[in-house]
Design a protein around this nucleic acid. Structure first.
Length: 415
RNA sequence: GCGAUCGUAGCUCAGUUGGUUAGAGCGCCGGUUUGUGGUACCGGAGGUCGUGGGUUCAAGACCCAUCGGUCGCCCCA
């Protein structure tokens, strides 16, 4: 008679050890950098009414029909685990009257949920960092966000091999003209496109531009370019973004085929990409979404933001060690257990990273302590009928711990 | 939704053309040795070979199904 252990949900992760340390390092670095730029921390609900996402994302796409975790609550209301941060933040901006704080710079991070087939760097529950500027129409907002992203990657030590790909989708008018030209162009050669792209032609023509199929690639070089459809205003906006990046010393690469599927995106679109993560190379992405807040019933509100996958950043960061062990207290005689407990408590209260080793065969404890990598070992044992503490460690470490050690020993030593 | 590939101890893996009681290293537990000591040796616990069927005198190995992992396609807010 054995109990069947329930399995973890597909696409969820139990992160432990050096991977978890890398994850924490990413979050800690983001928190530090975000404060440098005065982005205010917000905490958001993990679920919302389904409309928050379906209305902003658009009913038609696979995204809504297949890839959201939606369910009915007890009142038969459809709720959805957040698949992104932006829509929820836009909702909060409207329902809390945050217009009074505009232009509002906010940042958050946490878990998101998408019903997808897991693969490298893609999970059903995954985690993102997020930064948004709401109520700012100037290109300087785009620039500030990108400079912050750039600094974050540098401080994570992963800027080498990660490139900022930058594009503009123009304003509403330019974007529509370009889209129409693309549809005309691809429709003329429809029969020669891949099956997938023939589908895309109807549903999401911009996406043909990043097709991986060689049949499609043949036509991409001569496809209409957004630059030929930008009006003066849109051109000026993009120019200010690029010159701002240059002024701040942020390197970027023009990516004319970089697009966004959703209609509310305007002007700047960008992705920091790497070759090092297989097929999921985008590590941080975002853009300007001036149309979003209106689709949720709010006033016209220009906004721009980005999100970054914590798991993907953590993979680039690589494994990280847990906090180094400074001192380990070994109880070599079980009668001295309480001394050990008090000893290590005093060390920790004094800010020394330490462990207590008091289990298993007493004879093997010292060897285990030696293997633990601790900079200093304090071994408690009986010597000539007296409790005694023997120390081992590098001179410098012992010296630094000296005052601490004496206090810990004296305060805790029995009799 | 589609495709490829993998699944043997807690971990990393071995296991020949199908052939006795499925192994090693690491880790864990205990013992001996050493005794300012990170050593060496001995022993122990731990396996429904992912699961269920099938082929066969005989299956960890071959076939089918199923579950799970990994990678890719689609999608990518």
């Amino acid at each position: 008679m054995s109990i069947q252990t329930p399995q973890a949900i597909r696409g969820t992760q139990d992160i432990f050890g050096p991977d978890a340390e890398a994850f924490a390092f990413v979050v800690e670095t983001f928190e530090r950098v975000r404060k440098l730029y005065r982005f205010r921390r917000i905490e958001m609900p993990v679920f919302e009414k389904t409309e928050v996402f379906s209305r902003s994302i658009g009913e038609t796409t696979d995204v809504v029909s297949k890839e959201m975790y939606s369910f009915l609550d007890r009142g038969d209301e459809s709720l959805t685990l957040r698949p992104e941060f932006t829509a929820g933040i836009a909702r909060a901006y409207i329902t809390n009257g945050w217009q009074q704080h505009a232009p509002l710079k906010v940042a958050t991070h946490g878990p998101l949920f998408r019903y997808e087939r897991p693969q490298k760097g893609r999970y059903r529950q995954f985690h993102q960092l997020d930064a948004e500027i709401i109520g700012a129409s100037e290109p300087q907002a785009d620039v500030e966000l990108l400079v912050m992203a750039d600094q974050l990657l540098k401080e994570l030590g992963i800027d080498h091999g990660v490139t900022l790909m930058l594009n503009t989708l123009g304003d509403g008018e330019s974007r529509e003209a370009w889209r129409a030209a693309l549809v005309d162009y691809f429709r003329a050669v429809k029969g020669e496109l891949s099956e997938d792209s023939q589908e895309r032609l109807e549903k999401n023509p911009l996406r043909i531009l990043d097709s991986k199929d060689p049949r499609d690639k043949a036509f991409l070089a001569d496809a209409p370019k957004i630059d030929d459809y930008l009006n003066a205003e849109a051109q000026d906006f993009f120019g200010k973004v690029t010159s701002g990046l240059d002024a701040a010393g942020v390197e970027w690469t023009r990516a004319p085929a970089l697009v966004r599927g959703l209609d509310y995106y305007r002007h700047t679109a960008f992705e920091f990409v790497t070759e090092r993560l297989g097929a999921q190379g985008t590590v941080l992405g975002g853009g300007r979404y001036d149309g979003l807040i209106e689709t949720l019933g709010g006033p016209h509100t220009p906004a721009v933001g980005w999100a970054a996958g914590i798991e993907r950043l953590a993979m680039l960061v690589g494994e990280r060690e847990t906090t180094a062990l400074e001192a380990i207290v070994v109880v070599e005689d079980d009668d001295l257990l309480n001394w050990g407990i008090k000893f290590v408590a005093n060390l920790r209260a004094g800010g020394v990273t330490s462990d207590l080793l008091a289990s298993g065969s007493p004879r093997k404890r010292f060897d285990k302590a030696a293997k633990s990598g601790a900079a200093a070992i304090f071994a408690l044992s009986m010597k000539d009928g007296e409790p005694s503490c023997r120390t081992k460690g590098d001179e410098a470490v012992l010296k630094r711990l000296d005052g601490m050690m004496h206090r810990a020993v004296l305060a805790a030593k029995p009799q």
